[in-house]
Design a protein around this nucleic acid. Sequence first.
RNA 1: UCCUCGAUAGCUCAAUGGUAGAGCGCUCGGCUGUUAACCGAGUGGUUGCUGGUUCGAGUCCAGCUCGGGGAGCCA
Length: 463
Amino acid sequence: MQDITVKEIFREAEQHLGKELRVSGWVRTLRDSKAFAFIELNDGTFFKNLQIVLEDKLGNFNEIVKLNVGSSLIVEGVLVKSPGVKQPFELQATKVEITGFSSPDYPLQKKRHSFEYLRTIAHLRPRTNTFSAVFRIRSLAAYAVHRFFQERGFVYVHTPIITGSDCEGAGQMFQVTTLDPGNLPRDEEGKVDYSKDFFGRMTNLTVSGQLAVETYCMAFRNVYTFGPTFRAENSNTPRHAAEFWMIEPEMAFADLQDDMELAEDMIKYLIRYCLENAPEEMEFFQKFLDRDLFAKLDNVVNSEFGQLTYTEAIEILAKENPGFEYPVEWGCDLQTEHERFLTEKVFKKPVFVTGYPKEIKAFYMRLNDDQRTVAAMDLLVPGVGEIIGGSQREERLDKLEQRMAELGLKQEDYWWYLDLRKYGGTVHSGFGLGFERFIMYITGITNIRDVISFPRTVRSAEF
RNA sequence: UCCUCGAUAGCUCAAUGGUAGAGCGCUCGGCUGUUAACCGAGUGGUUGCUGGUUCGAGUCCAGCUCGGGGAGCCA
């Protein structure tokens, strides 16, 4: 008797036909008749189920057919070709051991459930087809991220999750403290005395690993972070979560053009990897979530990404204005409607927009020679809009200090960041990719809550 | 945070201001190859919460809570 997974059976069915096998898993559905019954068993290793055929000569037949969906079993039997059209083979059971009963109130029915309902049972939803596919893809994509960078010699850096810099500037932060909120220590002025806190200073959860990873960039040349990020923004949208994962590569001796090439290669690599290594899951998304998914992804993989400057983008948008809700003029930030028009209608493929006005971008982006734009790039993709944001960093100490002064940022708060420019600073560039946004893009899932196992959003941390 | 739509059985949804329903699920029975199995019977409700209008409110009004979508912020 050979223990085997459902995945192995599906991948090498021919060599297992006629053999005695033992599988174990959970009942997805059960259909019974007087003298026989069918169980679709999912063992967790594969997207598809194995059909088990039971005959009433099994000793515990009557007990088995009364099982509720969700029960766990160990099944022994012979793999045979199936006369049914929906599956090429099935396991003719010779012995069924019940290892865990379910109950009639099992919340997952055999029919389709709404995503909203499944969010209320987040601990059970990975047992559904959709979430089984989503989270297998998520795992695979995470592995592909590491493969992509490791193959290219990038060093994976774990930047801190608790940060002492209260000025990362990318958004509202969650404070980390061991102080008792009901009994805060105060200084002479009545302000909270953070010298009494755990770290002896105010600390928060990170909103970006970028500033920290730049320090390792100046030592290891090509580096990346891939970890959790936290934003305390009161955002109520299908694209925002309070806790999400970001991928942030950073390259020394690399300019904005190198940065864009890396971004394009990475996006194509990740999509190809998922298509090749999870074809059943990807077909499921194409069939049930987005009929245009494969066409959309093929277009990304097979086209050379477009490129234009912000100034050119504004000219095109102003000229072809199809009735935008927001006015278009030089200096304004591009709205989602503008981004999508550019990538979907004008270019019909992914496109990089570069050279944004310095006023609408972060302080660390490199000032261009025109003195009014910075070496920033956003990657826009059809169906979503912005998916990657990056830049060449300002490596010139005087220019960086000047920009920080303009924005009222205190140099002492960034002393170690400025040191990177003082001691052997060089041209360097990087970008950020929201991992969940990417997972949404390749699966066709439209709500970020459905690509995170236990999503944290405003007023929601049930699980 | 703003705009907008919504909340009725376990789930998905019906119900002119006048007796709260269906399908699915679940339970029981039937059925010798099922595929969201099928057939029959049964089970199922503080209509999100609080108040108001009315002879009468699931339905109209107000506030609140929660959820969907859009916007802003952004990834």
